[in-house]
Design a protein around this nucleic acid. Sequence first.
DNA 1: GATGAATGAGGATTCATTCAT
DNA 2: TATGAATGAATCCTCATTCAT
Lengths: 198, 198, 198, 198
Amino acid sequence: MKRNRPKYKQIIEAAVVVIAENGYHQAQISKIARQAGVADGTIYLYFKNKEDVLISVFQEKMAMFVETINEVIAGKETASEKLLVMFESHFKILSADTKLAIVTQLELRQSNKDLRFKINEVLKDYLSVLESILEYGKERGEFAADLDIRLARQMIFGTIDETATTWVLNEHKYDLVALAPKVHKLILNGCISENAAS
Amino acid sequence: MKRNRPKYKQIIEAAVVVIAENGYHQAQISKIARQAGVADGTIYLYFKNKEDVLISVFQEKMAMFVETINEVIAGKETASEKLLVMFESHFKILSADTKLAIVTQLELRQSNKDLRFKINEVLKDYLSVLESILEYGKERGEFAADLDIRLARQMIFGTIDETATTWVLNEHKYDLVALAPKVHKLILNGCISENAAS
Amino acid sequence: MKRNRPKYKQIIEAAVVVIAENGYHQAQISKIARQAGVADGTIYLYFKNKEDVLISVFQEKMAMFVETINEVIAGKETASEKLLVMFESHFKILSADTKLAIVTQLELRQSNKDLRFKINEVLKDYLSVLESILEYGKERGEFAADLDIRLARQMIFGTIDETATTWVLNEHKYDLVALAPKVHKLILNGCISENAAS
Amino acid sequence: MKRNRPKYKQIIEAAVVVIAENGYHQAQISKIARQAGVADGTIYLYFKNKEDVLISVFQEKMAMFVETINEVIAGKETASEKLLVMFESHFKILSADTKLAIVTQLELRQSNKDLRFKINEVLKDYLSVLESILEYGKERGEFAADLDIRLARQMIFGTIDETATTWVLNEHKYDLVALAPKVHKLILNGCISENAAS
DNA sequence: GATGAATGAGGATTCATTCAT
DNA sequence: TATGAATGAATCCTCATTCAT
């Protein structure tokens, strides 16, 4: 299995670094190879082509997101708590690896339609976790009985994505993780003042 | 003023059509020129370079968004109503021009970091309108007194952006405008059930 | 019509020179462009791709062969005479342009199957002329009534092709045109001695 | 002697199969190795380089041609009969192994000038046999006293080569061996009708 | 103003060959 | 002997931009 050989991960990590430092369109295979300490041709022993490298970067990293998030939400009882730790985990991973943040929030979005389509496929796992929390919250009566799951999922994903992108565009100059509880409150309660909610 | 000469708008409209039909990376200057009925070189009499064409597409269209939205929100008393008509207007414009929707939601995002940075500059007008509604809602006591304006703006923009993008990715097969009230309710009240909100 | 613009022929001639001097596999587009005194990209204004350049070289030159041969055979009464002037013309053209001879006899044969298939299509015009002479000779009673036209055509073409190739491989060190009457006699009478033919 | 070890022949046979099935330019060393059931590197224990493999294919097969032909012509008295059985043998070998026919008539001709030059060296043995028959025929008075041996050799080789190639290009859809007597008659008597030969 | 022919830089990918095991 | 992972050189084509007309 190629995925488990050391050079596979070496190339993936090199790609993240090169894309973050040079931008998507300046991330040539030769740069990635040099960064990984292998020959250009070696990359083609592990990946079908350049697109495959980029897809794999996203797959590997997104798998890590999903795995981490599944672990932390398992330890929480309520849907509300699950959402909170999900937001925290998401933001923590990005904060801990700002190069990864640049790559996923900005650079990989410049890819062409084919690649973006494949990236969307990978995203589905993440969105499933999110929808399952929303279902769970509805069942428990935490969330409104008429909550439109798909729309709520779009709101939540859109919000954390926009929050993370804005943070990257502001060059990480504030604490992203600290925003998690505030985002959480906003998602749960909305903008409205409690008095007006009657 | 070049902006007012007929060929200026002609080229802008041609660019929208070409990008929508061919995708960002297949939108060559020669295609745009052919679609606009002018010679390649003529484009350079009206625009500095290709990036300038793309920026201008976004500027022209976004100016229309802001103008339209300013008009409709002026006729509404409450911040809540203003938000609702804002969402409706936003979705109506995209629904009425699916090519424009494809261009702004999918294709222009494939541009490189420089161009996206400039696009974000243009977006600021739109975001200002949004923030001013939020401020207004706070002043009136409609919205929570401790509402973080910037975060709320990110939530709202992220939500409608994600909603619109998902609709485009689903090839406009459902009614986007019909989602406006539901998005509005979600933004205002959050996911939480009213009983649990105590 | 691109075929008539001066750069079209300029590029064709440059291709012949470059292929003859460097060999088929070392005939890069950049070399051909330099030889033609144009930019690499200019070649793609006149030809679809590299294969198209090579096909066109063959088409242009073969058209010249066919045209010349049609002219000279028109002036002859008998099939035998037509064949003789055909051989002479064929050999004269190759002798007058040894670079062309190298290209058609040796280099273009190294092309891949697709290209060779297209080259064979072009060759059909030439072979048609040959077959029509053979038909004519049969009708006139010059050639044997039971002559298998297709086989005779293969003999004649195979013979002049092999003769020309051998001459090129021997670096043109003898007079190819002088062989025409001898080839002609051999083709007409065969190897057999006249006494034995009874 | 490497030639006698089993893997040597194994690689040669694998090369014929791979070239016939994939074409000259798609006959990579790795494919030949896989077909032969050895590792890529093993090929370099038996052959100096890829060119050496291809030359050796031609040498081995051409040696078989020469050997077979020498056997059959030894059993014939006249030069005319020798030529006939030579043509029959040549065509029989190709008919019996259509992969070999594809390789020698089409694929190996795509090789570069160096390789083709070496292939021509190998061909000389075959051509010698042909020339010796012609000499023999002249001595016996079967062939014309003024027959130009070299030219006749070129005619004969060109004819059977073209005949064989045409047959391969027509995907072996007719009986090549059946053509031998007709080719033989044509070579011996030429195109001319017997009445006109006076 | 308008044209469009000409320019030329830039990069993914293949595959013969090597050499440590 | 045999292996096969690793190497790295080499090239076609696109397309934004210019500038003579």
